[in-house]
């Protein structure tokens, strides 16, 4: 599944689980490094990783979860846990996701369109 689809699914699941607002952030990384000493490779390092984080707000309370299991069951568990965590946190009127003009001049476009626009220039 594409990262954007995974994020959309997680946000939907979080709202179903009771979140008033939800934000998902996913990333996939590949990195490599090589260390050479006196002409010999001393250490070779390579990594591939992916992960997703979820921020939910219910009644001005914030909960946060993260994980590496991007299956539907894994996402469901993240959504449920985030809402449960938020219920234990204190209310803070400053909690809230940006909306409207706070999102900048392209706020009227939906996310998917914005991604397509950027991809094609």
């Amino acid at each position: 599944m594409k990262l954007l689809d995974t994020c959309e699914l997680l946000v939907t699941l979080a709202r179903k689980a009771g979140a008033a607002e939800a934000e998902a952030y996913a990333e996939r990384t590949r990195e490599a490094s090589v260390r050479v000493r006196d002409g010999e490779v001393e250490e070779l390092h390579q990594a591939s990783s992916k992960g997703i984080g979820l921020r939910v707000i219910c009644g001005q309370r914030l909960g946060f979860t993260y994980g590496t299991d991007l299956s539907k069951d894994g996402l469901k568990e993240l959504a449920g846990k985030a809402v449960a965590l938020a219920k234990g946190a204190a209310k803070d009127p400053a909690n809230g996701l940006p909306r409207g003009a706070q999102l900048g001049p392209r706020a009227h476009e939906n996310v998917r369109d914005a991604v397509v626009l950027r991809k094609h220039g």
Binding site: S49, Y66, T68, D69, K81, L85, G88, A90
Partner: peptide, 13 residues
């Protein structure tokens, strides 16, 4: 006096 943040995560690798 209040719970400012609560988080949880699960990582496998």
């Amino acid at each position: 006096g209040s719970i400012k943040s609560a988080q949880s995560g699960s990582v496998t690798g």
